[in-house]
Structures are given as structure tokens and as C-alpha cells.
């Protein structure tokens, strides 16, 4: 059973240069994917590739220029306002920055009580005690001690604790999908894995689907091992497939460049034999609309690549490259 289905998503931002001229930036160009019930998929890409915009559209915080986001078959952007609010509740976004995601003027108790009061109203016939119980329940689900944390203000917590509170707050409204946008990149390294572990557990315990947006390939491997990864470049999917298939045998040069860029731990790992570096910077200007979007940076590009845009092709492992070719770029663990 398919739960979240995204079809042909497009988002164009228009910026006014001056009174007469305007410029269009295509943040998302034709992206389609599905997340099965309780499943996980990861979006991998550099900052500015459009992955955050996709997450925000899925969470209902932004409207797509074109395309649909279906939750159990209902289009969340074309539902009536009441239905829409209900659908938005079921898809919760965990933002990158836990320092901005909590209101500095509210204690953790207030932050959790607000959405719970709303839920209590929907449920009808539940008492104030239910709110208190739920509060303790969601906090222990994320591994925090309610008695030690409820009365605190956000600035008294570490980054890891804040992100746990943010996740607990999302759980108060009993969502079906969590969109985790770079959810661990601003947390101290030693605490990152703990939060990833928590998201993994929530999937198993509560059957919540996870859309994990990240630049960290290894993190996507930890959280989305049994799911799929989508590699995004300039708002397009350039490669998709089962997580381990893509990481161990990437066929698109961009995916290969990303995997080459992962640092190799001396003595523990050996670099892939065909590891390569991309020298040029990602830029938005001077973007020709013709040909492969990665051609200008691709070390393997031919004249043909600059002429036609390759479609996303393949069966279960898809790649948007005219010359898909598997290269040994991924580091290998030594025994």
C-alpha cells in the first residue's frame, strides 16, 4: 500500500531584478517518488539542490508550481482548508536548526501542551490528565526525562536535547510521516547518531514513514538502510535505487563525485580505486537550459551531454546519465 505519493513536483521561484526584468529559478524540476507505509527514503544532495524545498512542499508549508502530493490518495495542496490542516498535521517537518525550531519564550511544557490541547479537543472526552500523560509519553519516547525537562526553557538544553524535544513535539499530533530535513547536521557529532537512532526506532515502534533529507551519505545509510535513496542535483533526481545498491555501485557521475568526496579514515578504510574530485563550483548563473545539468562540472562529459537532457532511466536502479557506468569510488572498510 502506498502512502505518500509525489508526482511531477515542480517549483519555480520568481525574483524581481528590477521593475521590468524578472528571473526564474527552478528549484524543483519534475520530481516523483513514493514512500510506502512505515517506509523510509533519503534525499541526498548539496545545499541549494532543492531538497529542502521538496521537504517543505511535502510538509505543506510551501505550494508547488505544478504537480501533486498525495497522502493516502488525497492531494494535500488542493484539499479544502479544514482538510488541509488535518493532512498537514499528519506530515510533520523536523527542521535542520533545533535552535530556531523552539520558541525561546516558552518552556518545553508549554511547547508540548499547545498541540496536545488541540489533539484533546479533537479526541473529545479526554481530560487534562490525558495531556499530562501524553506529554510524559512522547518525551520518554524520545529518550528524555519529563521531570527533568518540562520546566526548562529551550536555551537551557543542548542541541541534541532540543532536537529530541522537536521530535517529541511532532509526535504529539500523531503523524504518519516525518520529514527530517538535515535533522542532525547542527548537532554535535557525538550526539548525532543518537538522534538518528531515535528516528530509526520511531519508524519501527510507531510505524511512521520517514523522508530523510541530508548531505551525509553515511547518515542516510544508517537511517534508510532498508529504503531507497534519491540523489538530487539542481532540483532533479539524477539517480535512485535501493540504498546499498546506489552507495556501492553508483552509475551517475554526480553520485560518484559525492561518494568520492566522503573523507576516508586512514587505517580503517581504503579509498575507492576510481575516486575523483570535481574542481568547479556549483553555480546558478550561466545555466544553459539545454543538455545535462551536470555536464559543465562532469569530468566525463561529451559534446552529446551538452546537447540533450538525459531522462531518468532504468528499472529499480535508475540513473539520469547518457553513459551510466559503474565506478569504484566508495571507500571500503578494512577488516
Amino acid at each position: 500500500m502506498t502512502m505518500l505519493e509525489v508526482k511531477n513536483l515542480k517549483r519555480t521561484f520568481t525574483t524581481k531584478d528590477n521593475m521590468f526584468g524578472r528571473r526564474e529559478v527552478k528549484a524543483v524540476r519534475d520530481v516523483s517518488f513514493t514512500i510506502p507505509d512505515g517506509g523510509v527514503i533519503s534525499f541526498i544532495g548539496e545545499s541549494g539542490c532543492g531538497k529542502t524545498t521538496i521537504g517543505r512542499i511535502v510538509a505543506g508549508l510551501e505550494t508547488p508550481t505544478d504537480g501533486t502530493v498525495l497522502l493516502d490518495g488525497i492531494d494535500i495542496h488542493r484539499a479544502n482548508p479544514k482538510e488541509r490542516r488535518e493532512l498537514m498535521r499528519q506530515i510533520q517537518l523536523i527542521q535542520q536548526d533545533p535552535y530556531q525550531a523552539l520558541n525561546p519564550a516558552h518552556t518545553i511544557e508549554e511547547a508540548l501542551a499547545q498541540p496536545l490541547r488541540l489533539m484533546a479537543k479533537r479526541k473529545a472526552g479526554v481530560s487534562n490528565a490525558w495531556i499530562q500523560d501524553r506529554m510524559a509519553e512522547v518525551l520518554s519516547l524520545v529518550g528524555l526525562d519529563p521531570a527533568a525537562i518540562l520546566y526548562k526553557y529551550p536555551h537551557m538544553l543542548s542541541g541534541g536535547q532540543r532536537q529530541r524535544v522537536v521530535i517529541a513535539r511532532a509526535l504529539t499530533v500523531e503523524p504518519k510521516v516525518l520529514v527530517a530535513d538535515e535533522a542532525v547536521s547542527m548537532i554535535d557529532v557525538s550526539l548525532r547518531l543518537g538522534v538518528l537512532h531515535l528516528l530509526r526506532n520511531l519508524r519501527e515502534k510507531l510505524n511512521i514513514s520517514v523522508l530523510f533529507i541530508t548531505h551525509d551519505v553515511a547518515a542516510s545509510r544508517y537511517l534508510g538502510r532498508d529504503g531507497k535513496v534519491f540523489v538530487i542535483y539542481k532540483g532533479m533526481i539524477v539517480e535512485e535505487g535501493a540504498t546499498d545498491t546506489v552507495i556501492n555501485g553508483p552509475t551517475h557521475p554526480y553520485t560518484q563525485a559525492l561518494l568520492s568526496a566522503v573523507p576516508v579514515l586512514k587505517g580503517l578504510e581504503v579509498p575507492g580505486s576510481q575516486r575523483f574530485y570535481v574542481e568547479k563550483e556549483l553555480s546558478q548563473d550561466g545555466l544553459s537550459e539545454e543538455g545535462c545539468l551536470f555536464a559543465s562540472r562532469c569530468p566525463f562529459a561529451t559534446a552529446e551531454c551538452r546537447r540533450q537532457l538525459p531522462p531518468l532511466a532504468g528499472d529499480s536502479h535508475k540513473s539520469a546519465c547518457l553513459y551510466p557506468y559503474e565506478r569504484q569510488v566508495t571507500a571500503r572498510m578494512l577488516d
Binding site: E109, D133, A136, S140, G143, L144, D145, P146, Y151, Q161
Partner: peptide
């Protein structure tokens, strides 16, 4: 993981820190 040892007794959760 930072799993705090949490006893889910209602009394404890309801004890409000003022």
C-alpha cells in the same frame, strides 16, 4: 543513546515544577 531512565508514573509526570 541518551535514553534516560524514565519511570512513567503519572504522579511524577504531573508533579509540576513551578
Amino acid at each position: 543513546m541518551v535514553v534516560a531512565q524514565t519511570q512513567l508514573s503519572n504522579g511524577q509526570a504531573r508533579r509540576r515544577h513551578h
